[in-house]
Design a protein around this nucleic acid. Structure first.
Lengths: 214, 214, 214, 214
DNA sequence: GACTAAACGAGACGGTACGTCGAGTCTTTGT
DNA sequence: ACAAAGACTCGACGTACCGTCTCGTTTAGTC
């Protein structure tokens, strides 16, 4: 998560290629965080990165491509998967991590952009699917351990678990619109735990959306 | 969709053009459905409504105000609250209704607009809060009946139930991006039922976000 | 051109017709004085006259007609023709009268409107021609007396005299743009007198513009 | 008409489009000639110049600024000052030149714009003052020669002479509205000559208005 | 260490849409 | 029945960005 990272932060006479690249992407995320996708102006991004507009257009086809790229850069960083010893603890930890990411300026910006009008961009949709596919995959060991410990019924689907966990948090963030805090995280964990124990998260169905799970 | 419409619609000094008014709002929703908020052009809306651009601007301050109004108009249509005799049936029914609404062209457009870049508009935020407040409120009898029947623990919070029910559905629609069908609805109902029975939906806290729960 | 015939203009003095008529014309002149023809707005005129825009449009075809009428109303006030006993005194007096009229708010407005973009209006051109034709005609006795007194050569053309007198004053007002005071008036009178005495103002040619003099 | 034109025209950071610049100004004058200032549309000017509207607005703040600039460009062309050997001939020549300029399409447009509603623009007023100041200044040698030849009284003011000469011509053009031909020019010359000989054009006063006479 | 080729700075340009203002016309309503 | 109120169409205004283009001017990689 190298946000304000590369020492080329300010309108400095940017030397050459890679520094510029990083500076522009950082500026893009920053702008995204401040005003969202709609308010993002290539000219402002360029200025913020200490670079000329045409230089940006030289590397990225258009505003969309720029945003996609900037998002992809910052999305790689994913939520670390915990191992507290109990599925309850693990779920709570995962929920908190997710909330923590979502309330960070960058996280907020990225997530908002992933949902906003940028949704219309096919690349964004793809990126989104990729991200969640990844998250689902990484949750598998957590669920597997819980099943092994006998905490969850055999056949519990990791994807369904992650979905159930993430859903209330995103719902709060994007739809109902209230504050996003640990209370929400814990509630999400409790709901997921109850559902998993009740055996309703065994759906092997395509939860991951358009991503084929085979 | 024209609930409280034609004669004395709103405290707006309309006077002359109720037809125009309706036509413009319909055109707005149509455009919203086709291209989303970002691609919505006042001129195109006007043209589609068979009206001149300035006429639109006479009544609505902004593109934003226009969208807000159009959305508000079509939001009135709410999900009917069922009474099947069991909370399981009621939840399934509510989930199906919500899915039905969200997959309808209008519903899809409205809900998408409510989340997209239009989120930045304070009025949209307000409208969103109002809508969900309404939904929460209308769910109260359903939960109350279930509690009375002994299906759910005393103290179960209707808001929490609705949130839990709506969350997976919206998550699918907005985040994970897969197809929205009855499978999703039933999964949501099952999760909610499990959580409610487990007594984790008794949070008296403001789950509905900024909405007053009185 | 029965434009400014105030009292018994129409067969039926319906409603508060005549008062409105006068109020609107007055408002028009006032607006003309404040911002010129270009800045004159029918709506503002109407508002100033305490009348609705459509009421104005009912009586006057368009902005042009309104201005023409308003001007005609105030043009009636013409320069009184003096009789001081000498042509020098008469000319000086006429010049001073003209200057006095032109520096008055109304006079300034009227004259400016007659010249400004309103020039493109044929009716304005006509009105202008009529006005000057009138002034020329009314100057005839003055010149005739001077000739009779032997002050001016026989054959001196009254039109030419008035033109010569008015020209430097209007030139100052409209073209060179300096202050308009008695100095200008006297200079105009002196020039005219010198020219008339030298016999160069005997041109019987069409000085009155597009008006055919035979 | 392109006196001090193409290469380093004005202290304007033009940079790229001198052709465009000239084309737009030419189009502006043409439009001015056809419909006057009031009817001048930026869009039409742009189209006529084969340029986009926004390009025009990039260089000129306003419709007003555009007109001012266009006028300034075409004003440089001034009336050549004659030297026929006699003041009578010189005056006649000057009057004819002025008439010639005023009846030319461009001259007519420029002069009309200088007087019309554009008068409200301060820059236009300035430009006007500058133009006439220039004309007055350039007339000085003509008068000086006439005085040297003994044709005119010592102390005759060149500004007053030019004013006296130009006044009847402009009066005809702008006020009385008749045809503008050599008859008018000759009449103006005769009047001016008579007045100058009579010694009434010795006013040392500021006849040129706000123009500094040094 | 000089030289060439790509990358960059600078900014004009055509375009699309915005939101505003005013002119005139047309329709509804009150009396 | 008619005139006041005001809604509507139309056309232009001046603004903000978008994405493209063409110029120099650097700067990096090669010889």
């Amino acid at each position: 998560m190298e946000l304000g990272s590369t020492p080329a932060d300010r309108p400095r006479p940017v030397g050459r290629g890679p520094k510029m690249h990083a500076a522009v992407l950082a500026a893009t995320v920053a702008e995204l965080a401040e005003g969202g996708y709609a308010a993002l102006t290539v000219e402002r991004v360029a200025q913020r990165a200490g670079v000329h507009k045409t230089t940006v257009y030289r590397r990225w086809k258009d505003r969309a491509a720029l945003v996609v790229d900037a998002l992809a850069e910052h999305i790689a960083t994913d939520i670390p998967m915990p191992d507290t010893g109990s599925i309850g603890g693990d779920l709570r930890e995962m929920a908190r991590s997710l909330v923590g990411w979502l309330v960070s300026p960058t996280g907020r910006a990225v997530e908002a952009a992933l949902i906003s009008d940028a949704v219309r961009l096919p690349e964004i949709a793809e990126a989104r699917a990729r991200i969640f596919g990844d998250r689902f995959r990484r949750a598998e060991p957590v669920v597997a351990r819980a099943v092994a410990r006998g905490e969850l019924p055999v056949g519990t689907d990791p994807s369904a678990v992650v979905s159930a966990l993430a859903a209330p948090i995103h719902f709060r963030l994007l739809v109902s619109g209230g504050p996003l805090d640990d209370t929400v995280a814990e509630q999400a964990a409790r709901i997921t735990l109850a559902a998993a124990r009740a055996g309703v998260l065994d759906t092997p169905a395509r939860v991951a959306g358009p991503v084929d799970k085979g």
